[in-house]
């Protein structure tokens, strides 16, 4: 059974149809990359799987571990092991990262019928996971994302991913706004978290991230549909030739 199975997914925001029949199968242990020009539905797809209520699903289904999750609220999906790394992480003044993560970790534990972590257990976990993204101690005491640089925000996303240990992580444009060092740290973090039991979807429109996070599959999402699937060589080809040839291929095929 696939970990995630998206079948004929149609979705819109307001009156505008964005996804026009997406099909995608993802198994445990795999890394998938979704590429494509801006405005073709990559973030919409990520948002729908994570449970963002601003999108309306008009047709199709999303099965996670064999269960349709479209009716589950976002927090329940998270407790079921789905994680969304935001393209634009939200600033939350007044909530420290430590407090935020303690609440999130313990609410997820509660969902799974586990006792909350004690203060010292939690701090130990924090220390361990901060190393994954080379996060400084001071950053963890600051309000979530408030005044963070682009790189710090994305590190914080991967740090949260490390803390929550999801089964399915969707990283939406995690590479945007990163310099080379930050990109390396973030990508190394993602690789460290990779296991045979979890899967990752990396959404990007630059090939450079895929030098660090090597995908098993590369999909091209174009005009609301996955129009091409290949291996990491497809990403290189896209980098070299842009997306025009895909449009031409599609038009020729019609």
């Amino acid at each position: 059974m696939s970990l995630l199975s998206i079948r004929n997914l149609h979705a819109s925001i307001g009156d505008k149809e964005i996804l026009k029949g997406v099909n995608l199968e993802i198994n445990r242990g795999e890394v998938h990359s979704i590429m494509g020009p801006n405005g073709n539905g990559k973030s919409t797809l990520a948002g729908i799987v994570a449970g963002n209520p601003k999108y309306t699903v008009t047709e199709g289904e999303v099965l996670y571990n064999g269960k349709n999750i479209l009716d589950l609220p976002v927090d329940v999906r998270a407790c079921e092991g789905i994680f969304l790394g935001f393209q634009y992480p939200v600033e939350i003044p007044g909530v420290s990262i430590t407090n935020f993560m303690r609440t999130a970790v313990n609410e997820q534990r509660k969902y799974r019928g586990l006792d909350p972590l004690s203060g010292s257990e939690f701090l130990k976990l924090m220390e361990e996971k901060k190393k994954v993204v080379e996060m400084t101690a001071t950053l963890a005491n600051r309000s979530v994302n408030e005044g963070f640089s682009g790189g710090e925000k994305k590190k914080n996303e991967i740090f949260q991913m490390a803390m929550l240990n999801p089964t399915l992580a969707i990283l939406d444009e995690t590479d945007s706004g990163l310099d080379i060092d930050a990109l390396r740290i973030v990508a190394t973090g993602v690789n460290k978290l990779r296991t045979p039991d979890n899967a990752t979807i990396v959404i990007t429109h630059y090939q450079r991230l895929l030098d660090y996070i090597v995908p098993d599959f590369v999909h091209v999402l174009y005009e609301g549909r996955i129009v091409k699937t290949g291996t990491k060589e497809l990403a290189l080809e896209l980098e070299e030739k842009g997306y025009d040839w895909i449009r031409q291929e599609l038009e020729a095929g019609k």
Partner: peptide, 25 residues
């Protein structure tokens, strides 16, 4: 912000309380 907090597995009620406190903070 509410969606962001909830996307980490925090229930709606707890997320709202967190944000109200943050507002006062």
């Amino acid at each position: 912000a509410l969606f962001y907090i909830r996307s980490r597995g925090v229930s709606e009620r707890t997320a709202k309380t967190m944000l109200l406190y943050a507002f006062c903070d």
